[in-house]
Amino acid sequence: MSEPNDKFYFDDIEPDAQLLSSETVLDREAMRDFARRWDPLPIHLDEETARKAGLGDITASGSFLLATKNRLLYELGVDMAVIASFGFDEVRFKEPGKPGDVVRLRLTWLEKRLSTSRPDRGIAKHLGELMRADGTVILSLIDTVMIRTRPRA
């Protein structure tokens, strides 16, 4: 694996290898602000509604959790030579994200293959898991990306 801040290429991907982000806290007001603008479901905004729904407290919207995952991805300290993402598969919201949850991203490379038409790039899949400090996964998804190969001398 490359050192932090080095460019990370297709060649550096090893199936089953993992990257682990720093931690961040799900902030109540940030969750509410996001929900007000993008996903104003009452369980994301109002504690009483969330309690009546059996949730105990407001929950983060799925879009907020995806945005948190993306921020943590870019804070890994690895400059990935990704050209594009083909999209997320198997997105699962496994547990509610609650205010005060300490979360981090675990990225596990699943597979890779060279492009058959463009030898300067490859296709790789990774499992992204947003998890609480105790290891409980609250969000998981599979991302398929196009990533450059290491430039040849």
Rank of each mutant, 00 (worst) to 15 (best):
I123G: 00
R132L: 09
D101V: 08
W109Q: 04
I147D: 09
E111L: 03
G100H: 14
I123K: 00
S140D: 09
P99K: 04
I123C: 00
G122P: 04
P119L: 12
T108L: 00
A124R: 02
E111S: 13
T149H: 11
A133L: 04
L110I: 08
K112H: 07
P99F: 13
L110W: 10
V137W: 11
P99R: 02
R118Q: 10
L114T: 12
L139D: 13
T136N: 07
I147C: 05
L141S: 10
T144K: 10
I138C: 06
T116V: 09
S140P: 07
L139K: 11
V145P: 09
L107E: 13
D120W: 05
G100L: 08
L141P: 00
G128R: 02
R150V: 06
R150K: 11
L127E: 12
R113N: 05
K112L: 02
L130C: 04
R106A: 03
G122M: 03
D134A: 00
E129G: 10
R104M: 02
G100E: 11
L127A: 05
R104T: 02
E129N: 09
E111G: 05
I142H: 02
G100D: 12
L105Y: 15
A124V: 08
M146F: 12
L107T: 15
R148I: 01
W109I: 01
V103L: 06
M131D: 13
H126D: 12
P119V: 15
L105Q: 10
S117F: 14
D134S: 01
T149G: 09
R148K: 14
I142Y: 01
L107R: 14
R106S: 05
E111V: 00
R132K: 15
L130Y: 09
R148W: 13
K112F: 05
G100T: 15
E129H: 13
H126N: 14
S117H: 14
G122I: 03
I142A: 00
V103Q: 05
T116W: 04
G122N: 02
D120E: 14
K112S: 04
M146S: 06
V103P: 06
I147A: 02
K125T: 05
G100I: 11
L127F: 11
I123T: 01
M131T: 12
G122D: 03
D143F: 07
R104Y: 06
V102L: 06
M146I: 15
D101K: 04
L130M: 03
A124D: 03
V103E: 11
L110E: 15
L105G: 09
D101L: 04
S115G: 06
V145H: 06
W109P: 01
R132W: 09
T136A: 12
R113A: 07
H126S: 09
K112R: 11
T116I: 10
I142W: 02
L130K: 06
E129Q: 15
M131Q: 15
L139C: 10
L114F: 10
G122R: 00
G135T: 12
R118M: 09
P119S: 14
K125H: 05
V102P: 01
L110M: 11
L110G: 05
S117Q: 13
L139I: 09
G100P: 13
L114E: 10
T108F: 00
L105N: 12
L139R: 13
L141F: 14
T116N: 08
L127I: 07
T149Q: 07
R113Y: 02
I147Y: 04
I123F: 08
R150M: 06
